[in-house]
Design a protein around this nucleic acid. Sequence first.
DNA 1: TTGAACCACCCAAAAAGTGGATGGATACGG
DNA 2: CCGTATCCATCCACTTTTTGGGTGGTTCAA
Lengths: 293, 293
Amino acid sequence: MGEERPNLRWGVEQKLQFIEFRLFWEGHVNRSDLIEKFGVSPNQASGDLNRYIALAENNMIYDKSGKTYVRSSCFKPLFLKPDSTQYLAQIRSVAEGVVSPDDAWIGNLPVFDATPAPARGIDPIILRSIVIAIRRVEAIEVLYQSMSAQDPEWRWIAPHALAFDGFRWHARSCCEKSGQYRDFVISRIMDTRQTRAPQKQAMFDIAWEEVIELAVGPHPELSAPQKRAIELDYGMQNGRVSIPVRRALLYYALKRLGLDTEPSARKPQDQQIILLSDPNLSQGASSIGGGIR
Amino acid sequence: MGEERPNLRWGVEQKLQFIEFRLFWEGHVNRSDLIEKFGVSPNQASGDLNRYIALAENNMIYDKSGKTYVRSSCFKPLFLKPDSTQYLAQIRSVAEGVVSPDDAWIGNLPVFDATPAPARGIDPIILRSIVIAIRRVEAIEVLYQSMSAQDPEWRWIAPHALAFDGFRWHARSCCEKSGQYRDFVISRIMDTRQTRAPQKQAMFDIAWEEVIELAVGPHPELSAPQKRAIELDYGMQNGRVSIPVRRALLYYALKRLGLDTEPSARKPQDQQIILLSDPNLSQGASSIGGGIR
DNA sequence: TTGAACCACCCAAAAAGTGGATGGATACGG
DNA sequence: CCGTATCCATCCACTTTTTGGGTGGTTCAA
């Protein structure tokens, strides 16, 4: 079995990975797949397929009747670790238009849909200026539509991290007007202007650094099989799972998990999970509630 | 200005795109960046950088003092359309471990975190068998932990689509026991067995095909600036936005949008949005509530 | 002034890829 | 049963890409 992996060029490695990806997920590869995906000649595609066979002898055989290379029963991936998350992320990327079906490695996309995340498009120039300010540890002047001011206002912020709350992207920043760390919703930034050194960079963003462990369990009023199903969903052990959350993101995490309302607001089957006592919670939730500007 | 784009080989095109990606987002590229990312020799990297200059003359200049190629002021992308969604999706992919930092094109990753989505890992073999059943329009026997049965049970389902509810992945399937279309949570599938032709494939999955327009607006008790901020977040026009949702996913969509509880369950600032009357809603919600098994 | 860290360029040789041509195996429709 | 279409394999000469070994230039900082 030729299972050595010689030093291959990047392009060759990519093609071999592609062959293996298709073999695992679809069960077969064609010469024409390589031709379409990498724009090579039929000639070269033949060569690459045979190169793969030379390197991973028992993984693939040519099915003359099916006119295609098929995964053999003793297939063992050599260039790729099969990963569901990766496969599913690719489906989502295609559905969101981030990746064109031509660039995706999945050949035969299953029918797919997702609950809509009405994420407004972010101007790449604005996002870039924020990212650069984070990298350079600078303050940047942004035209921001806050929840309190009537119209968008120019204000100085010193961003230090990006955060995603499940819907929107935030720039975790020190607001130089109040001197406090807040979340600025990136889609509410209408424009950016100049940058300069931050006013007081010694201060720590404590709510960002502090990590709270959220103990979650199935709703106690569920039946035993219902509890078991929920435990499976969340990967719970002994009826509980511990979810680490930055305190700065606690408000959003609770909202996303559906734990931001009274337990009575939903039926147990809809609520599904509950918090298993969290000492920091009441303190954290109240001090975070006004964190968004 | 040499702005023709000759037929380039796939590998070359990739490298030029990488150069442009780095130029746009980071503002600079090095020969060493190409060397690390594509494993080429310093020699070749020089060649590729000069090839880029030859093709996009005014986009990049060498800064001798900074010892790096920098984006010129009149930069115009030629091989890539800058896209925030793509950039942010890449950050998330790296954070989730889907893409290793070495494979990501972003050189200097900003500090980042997200609200946790406790998505349990899915066995790629199980996912593959579901995807194949969808593609082949087959029924498949799965060992499923339902919400009603005490222990996992073998049952036949005929899946036809994948769905993502914001947390979990579902296989939208015809349950051959009840003859009805339901959502099967993929992480609750413990194992799969044989496949066969589906029992009655003539039946349509009406709840899947039917698309409901969800009219959403800012919470009426918010102040005018607060409303304006929310309108920005969701891209609303004239205080409303219409979100299309398959009826099969309506239950999850409402949950994700925080619209599955009484409006009084949260303060207006936390609720943020409300439904602007939906005639199909009451009917839809009740008939979907039990859709998950 | 010296070394380090960049980059440019020249050369011969290997590897990757193209285009054209020939041929084999299989399936499908008349 | 025959012709045709569709896969793939292989040989050839040729081009492009890439490597490796050089040599040298510029800038910065110690």
